[in-house]
């Protein structure tokens, strides 16, 4: 545990030194803020004609999509950078187990994104002040819980991919590709028949975003929690394998 924490806290601190992390956080918040602003503008404009009150979903929904592109940028350097700088040799000859290294890296990235998520709370708070009689807090909590779980799984995949390469950009591209596949796997399964066979069921189960829909609508389901936790665990396990196979080459 101690090694995980040592590695995670270094990784976390490094984000506040690295310009890339600042650029990612800045872009993320600016885009999110702009979407929030334009949504509010629409709501105010049409308020005279219909009784439409925006929910917290106007904040969460764009975040889900933004994470698809932003999270690979957060994890791309996690292990690839260590490999490129040669510091991997340092970590792999320190008395640290491979899985501790991978989990520590993941935790550091996770803590950084959690910080980013904490900052996005300004939008629900602002929204809460603007709509009567305030926003649905159940929707807010389940939405954010789902985001935390989803982000954890996405980052785990990112760290695992990063273990395979020594070039950050390649890690980014491959990670984005993998994310796209599990993101859109639904398109394949639902164009068939809704009551498809086992294959369709598996594909539907694998879809990454499907499991988020319940959270988005205010439902906290055990299946969905289990799904994201298993993806996280599996990805971290694979990441450890990738680090281990590096030693054999």
């Amino acid at each position: 545990m101690r090694n995980i924490w040592t590695i995670a806290s270094r990784e976390y601190k490094q984000f506040f030194i690295s310009p890339v992390a600042y650029a990612v956080a800045f872009l993320f918040l600016v885009v999110l803020g702009w979407i929030f602003f334009s949504n509010m503008l629409t709501a105010i404009t049409y308020a005279a004609y219909q009784s439409y009150a925006p929910t917290v979903q106007i904040v969460i929904s764009p975040m889900v999509t933004l994470f698809l592109f932003f999270l690979p940028a957060i994890t791309m350097g996690a292990l690839a950078q260590e490999q490129r700088m040669g510091t991997m040799e340092l970590l792999l000859t320190a008395p640290v187990k491979d899985w501790e290294l991978v989990v520590g890296k993941w935790l550091g990235c996770f803590m950084f994104v959690l910080t980013l998520l904490a900052v996005t709370w300004v939008f629900p708070i602002a929204l809460n002040a603007m709509v009567e009689p305030g926003i649905d807090q159940g929707l807010l909590l389940s939405g954010y819980l789902g985001l935390v779980l989803m982000v954890g799984a996405m980052l785990a995949i990112g760290v695992a991919v990063s273990a395979l390469f020594s070039n950050q950009l390649v890690a980014f591209a491959v990670n984005l590709g993998i994310m796209m596949i599990i993101w859109f796997v639904q398109a394949v399964s639902t164009t068939g028949s809704a009551t498809g066979g086992l294959g369709d069921k598996i594909l539907t189960y694998l879809n990454f975003v499907d499991h988020y829909v319940d959270f988005y609508q205010g439902l906290i389901g055990v299946t969905n929690i289990v799904y994201y936790l298993s993806v996280t665990a599996l990805a971290l396990f694979l990441g450890t394998m990738f680090v281990e196979t590096r030693r054999w080459r």
């Binding site: 040592t6 590695i7 030194i17 700088m85 040669g86 510091t87 991997m88 340092l90 320190a94």
Partner: peptide
């Protein structure tokens, strides 16, 4: 204790922080 051929260092850390990090990894 190992000093590799290409000295592996985190160039964006201070000397103290780097050594402290390594010391922490060694408990």
């Amino acid at each position: 204790g190992y000093l590799p051929e290409t000295v592996p260092l985190y160039t964006d850390m201070t000397v103290f922080d780097y050594l402290k990090f390594m010391a922490d990894l060694r408990h």
